[in-house]
């Protein structure tokens, strides 16, 4: 039964430091407090990716060219089967995906759609285009409840 004594002792020794932190405030924190300007700039970075992803998802030729990807060769775009990203079910990944017969991520599924229905060219998992598509899909579905593994 030594553990409680050890814990009590540790807390006792830490008490001055805790009191100091309360009194002094966040001056010793590891970073500056966030400001509305900073938050806005972070959000802008995110929304720029969402915007690019939206354009790619809707088959915008100029964006595809600028990002060096060929997402479709049939005239089909992602949004033609998934308006407003409907039925992409990003909140259910990772999961066993029957079409691929494997445990798959959303990125695997995006590439499967590019290669099969769209007959386009697969993109790298960590490519800018993949991150933008992922950003758009998650943003569009951000009110949907997470349900990983759901069929």
């Amino acid at each position: 039964m030594t553990a409680p004594i050890t814990w009590s002792f540790t807390l006792f020794r830490a008490a001055p430091a805790v009191a100091l932190a309360v009194l002094v405030g966040p001056a010793v924190a590891h970073k500056d407090p966030v400001t509305p300007q900073l938050l806005n700039s972070y959000q802008q970075v995110f929304m720029e990716q969402v915007r690019k992803g939206d354009l790619l998802f809707h088959g915008d030729a100029a964006t595809e060219e600028a990002m060096g990807v060929v997402l479709s060769k049939t005239g089909m775009a992602c949004a033609m089967c998934h308006p407003m990203t409907a039925d992409t079910h990003p909140a259910t990944f990772p999961k066993f995906q029957a079409q691929m017969a494997k445990f798959a991520t959303l990125r695997d599924m995006i590439n499967w759609c590019i290669e099969k229905p769209n007959q386009g060219e697969k993109i790298a998992d960590d490519s800018e285009a993949m991150k933008a598509l992922e950003a758009y899909i998650y943003w569009s579905q951000s009110g949907t409840v997470l349900n990983p593994g759901k069929f």
Binding site: K52, H58, D60, M84, D87, A91, T92, Q141, T144
Partner: peptide
């Protein structure tokens, strides 16, 4: 019910990129 795509409820946002003019 599992055969029905909407057995997974969705909350969707409208697209934004076509609201910015010109692109």
């Amino acid at each position: 019910p599992d055969d029905y795509a909407k057995s997974i409820p969705e909350v969707l946002r409208a697209r934004i990129a076509d609201n910015i003019w010109p692109y």
